[in-house]
């Protein structure tokens, strides 16, 4: 007599739909791909051979002097000094697929910036001459990581407070609910504006500020589910069997309340991506140099004739959100034990 692991069941169910499988594979592939952005899109060579010695510029910093230059600063592998060095004799260098980083400016461009897509910049450049493809890759990675952490923090805090409120009800519920009402009436956007002028803008600051407010919408749902769940007959039965509060919450009420949490999961992740994008678009988000989708969209708005800016960002954004929502739908469907 073998008891089948429930998680395998869920995974089998998720796999049974092509849409789910495809969305998950595409998204994971792009996400993993973007995690290695430094190897894929960089202005430094992955490996190079100068005068019979191998260098790994992506891993280590080499100063200009190493190659016989005049400066103590890191070598610029794109300037004429280095390019002539690399093309000399038997020297060689292997550049990444896209030989630009998110902050490297293409100074050799013959056309004014923003430049059209060309053999040098596959998706063109922005108005400062930075490669759009590189900024998209780095921007995508940042957005997704940001969204994941924001969602994770929000869910943990939201479930924690919602569970406490719903399970213990009564006075505990009353006080936390009043606190939430006061807390949620604080003007979030103004706080963001004020804080972004007080502190140096950074990703960490954004995550902290948004997390302070983001958990409340979720805790409401968790609370409602727990209020409903605590009086279910199977919960009363568990209590008569002597299970502790913690066991009842984790075994009985939480799994049955997770549907609402998981239903919101894809929307929360895509929502977080959208928040970051819009804050960047308004210039309230990440520091100016950071690659971000919102900043690219803002550039697209200012340079309306540079269609490659807005179009490519738009496709990346919509594609990401769509994939996330498909995956979320799939997870929700496969968690529902009642559908066959």
């Amino acid at each position: 007599m073998k008891v089948i692991d429930r998680n395998i069941n869920i995974w089998n169910k998720f796999k049974s739909s092509n849409r789910n499988k495809l969305s998950l594979y595409i998204f994971s592939f792009i996400f993993l791909f973007s995690l290695f952005a430094e190897v894929i899109s960089n202005d430094k060579p992955i490996v190079m051979n100068i005068d019979n010695q191998l260098y790994y510029p992506i891993l280590f910093k080499y100063s200009d002097k190493t190659f016989g230059g005049y400066f103590d600063t890191e070598a610029n592998y794109k300037d004429s000094f280095m390019t002539s060095k690399i093309s000399k004799d038997k020297n060689w260098a292997v550049f990444p697929l896209n030989p630009h980083s998110y902050d490297s400016i293409n100074l050799n461009n013959s056309t004014p910036n923003p430049a059209r897509p060309s053999i040098h910049n596959y998706l063109g450049t922005d108005d400062r001459g930075r490669d759009v493809l590189a900024r998209l890759i780095y921007g995508f990675r940042l957005s997704v990581l940001f969204a994941f952490s924001l969602t994770a923090i929000g869910i943990i805090i939201g479930i924690f407070f919602g569970a406490i409120q719903g399970y213990f009800a009564g006075k505990v519920d009353l006080y936390i609910q009043r606190f939430i009402e006061i807390w949620s009436s604080m003007p979030e956007l103004y706080l963001l504006i004020i804080f972004s002028s007080l502190f140096e803008p950074s990703i960490l600051l954004l995550i902290i500020l948004l997390s302070l407010f983001g958990w409340m919408s979720l805790s409401d749902y968790v609370r409602a589910e727990f209020l409903k769940g605590r009086n279910m007959e199977y919960v009363i039965a568990a209590r008569t069997m002597g299970l502790s509060n913690y066991q009842i919450i984790t075994r009985h009420i939480l799994p049955n309340s997770m549907v609402s949490v998981i239903t919101f999961l894809p929307f929360r992740i895509s929502g977080a991506i959208l928040i970051l994008t819009s804050l960047d678009f308004l210039g309230l988000g990440v520091p100016p140099d950071t690659p971000s989708l919102g900043e690219l969209l803002a550039q697209g708005k200012e340079n309306i004739e540079a269609w490659w800016l807005s179009l490519s960002t738009f496709i990346v954004l919509v594609g990401t959100l769509l994939l996330l929502i498909f995956i979320g739908e799939g997870i929700r469907e496969s968690l529902d034990t009642r559908s066959s």
């Binding site: 007959e233 008569t240 069997m241």
Partner: peptide
């Protein structure tokens, strides 16, 4: 809680008295 095993209950509605997300073994 040490004595709770001595008195148990069976409810009216067999649909709400079993948690829908647990197997019979659980």
């Amino acid at each position: 809680r040490k004595h709770r095993n001595n008195f148990q209950i069976v409810f009216q509605d067999p649909f709400s008295s079993l948690s829908p997300r647990l197997t019979i073994f659980e």
